[in-house]
Nucleic acid binder design. Structure first.
Lengths: 126, 126
DNA sequence: ATGCGTGGCGTACATGTGTCATTGAAGAGG
DNA sequence: CCTCTTCAATGACACATGTACGCCACGCAT
């Protein structure tokens, strides 16, 4: 249950997300996938990937002379850990207040609401 | 919209939460209010409060020879900023996936579910 | 061969964070 | 008053994080 590996920093998470999207990628590919509003130097990406590996979030193999990285921890896991942590720190462990916040203070479209209701029903008869 | 003040670190948030609860307090009072599972040195609390003030989250006045701190930014605001940030970096800005996660992957009690449904209805006819 | 792009690896370095130790002055007791 | 106690204020320090440079090796097109 405890998050055995150390937590991701902001930048590391950004890079990890890209890697999840790519399934498997070289530094260059991750670098190329960076959104325009977050330019990073090639080496910076390299550093992040190295640190991600050191922290146990990704693995890599050397293919020829190129290192290929791929995720080792699934997004779901990281999401769980991150959200748990946030709920803990911000709401003392209660998730309902977070729900309330989301519903009341953030824009939810009508589709979102419909979908939500569906989720609730499904959750209901289980 | 932009979070003009720099974000709170983990420890800073812990202390800020205590201060929100106390409305107004001296270093010593905050220190005394620390939960048993998170002991911090008096000076450490002092440092956090100082940094919180530097970041603009709290203010203080010297009353006699004692400094009294009080919140300057409301919890709601910090919550909004923090959650926005998390939704952004973890779900690309969509809040529905976070909802889904909360409903499906975290334990919600029956009361929580009932409450949720009420929230949705209220939200509905508005 | 020579020089250029691609890429790995190690290194660097400023700033942010977690956590205290030390300093220094205001009030209490004699 | 002078010393002792008690805190507030400041300094310090190690580790984390954001961001990048530099050097070197390889392979390909002059």
């Amino acid at each position: 249950m405890a998050p055995d590996r150390s937590p991701l920093s902001r930048g590391e998470l950004d890079v990890a997300r890209l890697l999840w999207g790519l399934k498997s990628a070289t530094v260059r590919e991750v670098h190329a996938a960076l959104p325009d509003d977050r330019p990073l130097d090639f080496s910076t990406v390299q550093t992040y990937l190295r640190r991600l590996e050191a922290k146990g979030y990704v693995t890599s193999v050397l293919e020829g002379r190129t290192r290929v990285y791929r995720p080792r921890i699934r997004p779901k896991t990281v999401i769980r850990e991150t959200v748990d942590d946030l709920v803990e720190r911000l709401f003392g462990g209660e998730s309902l207040p977070l729900m309330r916040h989301l519903i009341e203070d953030r824009g939810l479209s009508d589709e979102d609401l419909a979908e939500l209701r569906r989720l609730l029903e499904k959750r209901d008869d289980s």
